[in-house]
Design a protein around this nucleic acid. Sequence first.
DNA 1: GCGCTTCATTGACTTTGGTTAATAAAATCA
DNA 2: TGATTTTATTAACCAAAGTCAATGAAGCGC
Lengths: 195, 195
Amino acid sequence: MKPEEEILRYIAQFTTLSQGEAEEIVKTIKVKAFKKGAFLLKEGQVAKLCYFVLKGCVRQYFLVDGEERTTNFYTEGQPVTPYGGTFRQEASKYYLSCLEDTIVTVGSPEQEALFFAKFPRLEPVSRLAIEEELGKSQDQLSTFILSSPEERYRQLLATRPDLLERVPQYHLASYLGVKPESLSRIRKRITIKAD
Amino acid sequence: MKPEEEILRYIAQFTTLSQGEAEEIVKTIKVKAFKKGAFLLKEGQVAKLCYFVLKGCVRQYFLVDGEERTTNFYTEGQPVTPYGGTFRQEASKYYLSCLEDTIVTVGSPEQEALFFAKFPRLEPVSRLAIEEELGKSQDQLSTFILSSPEERYRQLLATRPDLLERVPQYHLASYLGVKPESLSRIRKRITIKAD
DNA sequence: GCGCTTCATTGACTTTGGTTAATAAAATCA
DNA sequence: TGATTTTATTAACCAAAGTCAATGAAGCGC
């Protein structure tokens, strides 16, 4: 599968695209590659662009007292919608940094307008997609917040096992809201129980 | 302010409505009243409707081992978008229960379609509104996960002090991800420190 | 208003995560 | 490869949340 096609798979969740539409979309979208360690967004910048990960892994985090707090990992097939992305034009508190060499599509509000002018049918579909993301985010909020760190780790293990492979543990710890030492102990506890 | 106008205030965040649009909207929307203790949604039901709270308070929660875990409180001026609301027609794991006598607007996908047919200008606006909610949800996730329960309580105190008045403490505890006993101790710690 | 039920607080004890520091393992790079 | 840096684990100790149980306070129904 060519990386560009990843976005078709995503759209296919919400609607059935005609052959022509699919080809047009692949032609229309802008693809950009980032090296490991590169930033899609830095704190203080106004997020003007939206992304969709075709390949690689992007980590979202912000700083508290100089310490990084990871809030999300975006991997293949996930849209990256930095808060204030299109509507509020505010300085972002988030960083978006590539944990691997990463390929994304890039969308600006202007492109988006052109895109919907060309494919008006997809405007409501896009709303559905965002509603879906909202639902997921709220689901994550509830399952994560109301769980212990150990439950959160198990949850992560169940839902995104790929992350355990490709993301350093101290970033996962930050994401789970614990210190690396604690995550280490949690892992130990779990393997002992598993015996 | 008539309760119906609450929804105009919400929309005004995202766009400026003409007099005529505002009147049409107030005429178009469906309003429904629920008694304290009534359910807008129960686990296992397919959420077909979306709500917007005009007056009162709705608690969202789900069950883990028979125990309620509160994930949100919706009060005046907040949209209630149960996951799967419009797109996925899946059985919900959430309950939506009224903590007070509550007045909401009710929207179905069909009504929504009619609505956007009448006000096509508002379709992209609605998308912005949902993006905004998504951003808030993600922000909430990050600030909550990465805070201690005490910080979370202080946060709640700062952002939604009304909830402390109108919601029983054990529901707040559940919302903060701690046991009622712990919330009690947190409150004690804080008042002692405040001396 | 009285009584009952529900909710909030407190105490003793356990479990778990934070902190600090040392060490081991792994990744990186010259 | 070998040396250096980064990341992961372990230990000892402290603080905070969970658990269990008892007591007070508040809310509600009759």
